[in-house]
């Protein structure tokens, strides 16, 4: 076991530098190596993911759930799933980071939409002030993107209401119905706006 870990620590940097010329690409392939380590039962792998991502993962879950304690609960569950499912990650298919964040996002959305949803809504979402704060936070997610990212530019190219709807769904975890309600438009309209917005976004990012 100790030998295996030593081998790993030697391979880390290699993966980290395989094709990246930027620091962020490096860090991302470190996550790939860490997932591979998890798949072999090496806890250091999980710890490395935790050290580099946990703060952001909790923040992402908290944007959806509006409660810090629930966000931590989700991240805890997510890390167990990362540990037990790391062998399912395929390096050629999408980034390791995308795979990890998707697990946290899915669990946060499930929690929001399961039984706890009503509590969360009752305690937090209906509070108008807090909701205004959440809207600001949702729109800020777009504004905080690096100026030179395509996603920022492509979102900027969408009609305001389409951009807002897409961000409400991704960043805040809102459903079609909730988006329609907040924007005071019929459900069918919300659905088709979002669908067309996503389609333009794919074209723009292609």
């Amino acid at each position: 076991m100790t030998i295996k870990q030593a081998e790993y620590s030697r391979t880390d940097g290699y993966f980290g530098r395989e094709d990246g010329t930027t620091l962020s690409a490096d860090l991302s392939s470190d996550l790939e190596t860490a997932l591979l380590a998890c798949a072999t039962g090496d806890r250091n792998g999980l710890r490395r993911i935790y050290d580099s991502e946990a703060g952001r993962l909790v923040a992402v879950a908290q944007r959806i759930l509006r409660r810090h304690d629930l966000a931590e609960e989700v991240v805890q569950e997510a890390f167990l799933r990362i540990w037990t499912h790391a062998h399912q990650y395929r390096p050629g298919r999408g980034s390791a980071r995308g795979w990890i964040y998707a697990i946290v996002r899915n669990r946060a959305l499930n929690m929001l939409r399961d039984g706890k949803r009503e509590d969360i809504v009752a305690e937090d979402r209906l509070d108008a002030l807090q909701e205004a704060g959440q809207m600001d936070e949702i729109m800020a997610a777009w504004q905080k993107l690096d100026r030179d990212t395509r996603l920022r530019e492509c979102l900027g190219g969408l009609e305001e209401v389409r951009r807002r709807s897409i961000l409400m769904a991704y960043v805040g975890g809102f459903t079609h119905g909730e988006i329609a309600g907040r924007l005071k438009i019929p459900l069918g309209t919300a659905k088709s706006w979002i669908r067309r917005g996503l389609s333009s976004l794919r074209e723009c990012l292609a």
């Binding site: 909790v58 908290q62 795979w99």
Partner: peptide, 24 residues
Amino acid sequence: QDRFLPLDMAVEPARISASLWTSI
């Protein structure tokens, strides 16, 4: 997932309880 990931990467990391890792 990768298309929308930058929206998550731009978030300000949250403070996390010291006990979170221990629980995991």
